[in-house]
């Protein structure tokens, strides 16, 4: 069995406009890959299409999780198969506490009648919260309701830590974070790195990659990956800007 998240010639459109024009990318388990790209290059679209957002239509190609296609599956089935998306703009769920939400998500992965043990669950939750330097009172707050930008992103990483996905896609997790929050969030992600998980970090800025150091960097322009390379590529992008790769795209 393959241990990769593989995107093959993926084409996707919204409202009849094609955004992804045949995108290729493979993230092996145990590696951290980064996608860099300007606003409008299709980065967030890629994340949403992989997760199965109903607004997008896949017009070609495939997305394979450990060799099996996930296209056509409902978003919740993809999630239970092991795909996690840390949202750029996480939704608020008024009245639903983080503790209840996470427990419901964990129970959804188990057979009926075998719900998570409450004591074990809280032990696990508190352990992960300590790791992310999150105050205990956090669990009784409604999911993302009235959260600061930093709190929202910490909450995303907390959920990732609790759900232990096979592959995680982090969509602009650095946006809206001050340097302290960025360090904490990065520390959380780094602690989850390991042979059991493949991580795809999507970002606009190189700054995040100082803290979450990727194994491979991909540059995305106009719905395609135009250049891939080692972590140093991120620094090069920072220096030279996106203009020089855009020329590559048109070649």
């Amino acid at each position: 069995m393959k241990s990769t998240l593989e995107i093959k010639g993926l084409k996707a459109a919204i409202n009849g406009t094609e955004i992804l024009h045949g995108l290729n990318l493979t993230v092996p388990k145990g590696e951290v890959h980064a996608i860099m790209g300007k606003n409008g290059s299709g980065k967030s679209t890629l994340a949403k299409v992989m997760a199965g957002h109903p607004d997008y239509e896949v017009t070609g190609g495939d997305v394979l999780l450990d060799g099996k296609t996930i296209l056509g599956l409902d978003p919740d089935v993809r999630a239970r198969e092991g795909l996690f998306l840390a949202f750029q703009y996480p939704s608020e769920i008024p009245g639903v506490t983080i503790a209840n939400f996470m427990r419901a998500a964990l129970n959804a992965r188990r057979p009926e009648g075998q719900e998570v043990d409450a004591v074990e669950y809280y032990n696990e939750l508190y352990k992960k919260m300590d790791l992310l330097k999150i105050d205990r009172s956090f669990t009784s707050r409604a999911v993302n309701d009235g959260f600061s930008g930093g709190e929202k992103k910490k909450n995303e990483i907390l959920q990732m830590a609790m759900l232990e996905p096979k592959y995680a896609v982090l969509d602009e997790t650095d946006s809206g974070l001050d340097i302290d929050a960025l360090k904490i969030v990065s520390h959380g992600v780094n602690s989850l790195r390991g042979p059991k998980m493949g991580i795809l970090v999507i970002t606009h800025y190189q700054r995040l990659l100082d803290y979450i150091v990727p194994d491979v960097v991909h540059v995305m322009v106009d719905g395609r990956i135009v250049k891939s390379g080692p972590k140093e590529l991120a620094l090069e992008m920072e220096k030279k800007g996106y203009d020089w790769v855009e020329n590559l795209a048109t070649v």
Binding site: P75, D76, I93, A108
Partner: peptide, 16 residues
């Protein structure tokens, strides 16, 4: 729809 999608991405069915 975004709220439902967010929750589904965590593994909950649409009904849940």
């Amino acid at each position: 729809a975004e709220q439902i999608f967010y929750m589904q991405q965590r593994g909950l069915s649409e009904g849940q």
